[in-house]
Simulated assay, not measured.
Amino acid sequence: MTSQTSESQSGTRRTVAVIGAGTIGLGWIALFLAHGLRVVVNSRRPEAERIVRDSLELSAPYLPGGPRDPGELAAGLTFEPDLERAVAGADVVQENAPENLELKQELFERIGKAAPAGALILSSTSTLNPDAMGERMPDGGRLVVGHPFNPPHVVPLVEVVAGQRTDPAAVEEAVAFYRSVSRHPVVLRKPILAFAANRLQSALLRESIHLVREGVVSVEELDDIVTHSIGLRWATVGPFLAFHLGGGTGGLRKWLNTLGAGLEQGWELLGRPRMDEETIASLIEQAEEAYGTSYEDLVRARDTRQTAVLAALEQARD
């Protein structure tokens, strides 16, 4: 890994190899193309080219900087089914394979041998440690986790995670690269299973399922509660700042010693729902009744609202 500054490194990274054309990979492809990068797509899916082009039609209106022409975006695309050839000229590799450690170890062993020595090698994994994934790489210190929050072309967060063997310079370069494509990277201070954002999401999902399973609310009503309260709040302030403000002029110090004094007792009341067949069937039935099964329409509605929120927050900062 070179010792160049992060800013100069990110400025010279012009070709990105995206490994995998699933939901996350498709979002990365759109984002990278929107920032003028050349994108080489490597996928085992025989219909990968059609899927990517269809996805660009869906995501083009919701990219940073405003809507784009899908045809112009596609001009920066190349499709290369051979992994070694796909990464051979890449400045950045963003891997998006299924969460299978053995599969990722094999991929990164091959990527590590075929990619240029100075290439930034990134993984979108949501659970795995970079040390474990890069165990068979010639230089596992080059591998950094860059875990996005779906959809990666809209939601700014990228969790950057290093292992014990990761070169600190690689982490700095990963942060600079993600900033250069208008993402908001946060470096986790140590690796933990499922990282941070998904653990928070999982905790809320567990209680959401409990409330639905117990008949307190329906799936649709639960979503209404979140989007009209804590979801709106969390778009502007995080949990700690929210309760810091909840304490009034005394801040978090006051809140923790008054309203927050019974936190542990309250946590004991939280549900631990069983994900049995009846629960799963009920959740699916309610979700399909409330929202239907048109994926494209739901994506457009979601991304329209999310980009509107981001635009409003950006205006509020100005």
Rank of each mutant, 00 (worst) to 15 (best):
E84A: 14
G118N: 10
E95Q: 11
P98I: 12
L120N: 02
A86Y: 01
D82P: 00
I111T: 13
G118I: 01
V92A: 07
E95D: 09
L103K: 13
V87N: 06
A88C: 00
P98L: 08
V93E: 06
G89H: 03
G118Y: 01
A90E: 01
A119I: 00
G118V: 02
D91F: 09
L101T: 12
V87F: 04
A114Y: 02
A86D: 09
I111C: 12
A86I: 03
G112R: 10
P116D: 07
G112D: 05
V87W: 02
D91M: 06
Q94P: 01
E109H: 15
I111V: 15
E109T: 13
N100V: 15
R85T: 13
E99P: 09
A117D: 12
V87T: 07
A115H: 04
E84L: 01
L103Y: 14
A86M: 04
V93H: 12
L83T: 07
D91K: 06
L107S: 12
R85V: 02
A86P: 03
A117S: 15
D82A: 10
L83Y: 07
P116V: 10
G118K: 05
F79D: 08
V92R: 03
V92Y: 06
E84Q: 11
A86L: 01
P116Y: 08
A115E: 06
G118M: 00
R85G: 03
R85L: 12
A90Q: 02
N100A: 14
N96K: 03
E84R: 14
L101N: 06
P116L: 05
E102G: 13
D82W: 09
I111E: 10
L101C: 09
D82N: 13
V93C: 05
A117P: 02
P116G: 05
E109K: 14
V93K: 03
K113W: 03
E95I: 08
V93T: 10
F108C: 07
E84G: 14
L103W: 10
E84C: 10
A97V: 08
V92D: 03
A119N: 00
A117N: 05
E95M: 06
A117F: 01
G118L: 01
A117L: 08
E106Y: 04
A119D: 02
A90M: 03
E95A: 04
E99N: 02
L101M: 13
V93A: 11
D91S: 07
V93R: 04
P98V: 09
P98R: 08
A114P: 03
G112F: 03
A115F: 05
P98M: 05
A86Q: 01
G112E: 11
E80C: 13
P98H: 08
G112K: 09
E106P: 00
E102P: 03
E80P: 00
G89N: 12
Q105N: 14
Q105V: 13
K113E: 15
E84Y: 05
N100T: 14
K113V: 13
F79V: 11
D82E: 15
D82V: 14
A119Y: 00
I111S: 11
L83A: 11
Q94M: 14
N100P: 03
R110M: 09
R110D: 11
R110G: 06
A88G: 10
R110F: 08
E99T: 09
Q94L: 11
G89K: 04
E102V: 15
Q94S: 11
A115R: 04
A117H: 06
L103V: 15
P116T: 06
Q105W: 13
E84T: 08
E106C: 00
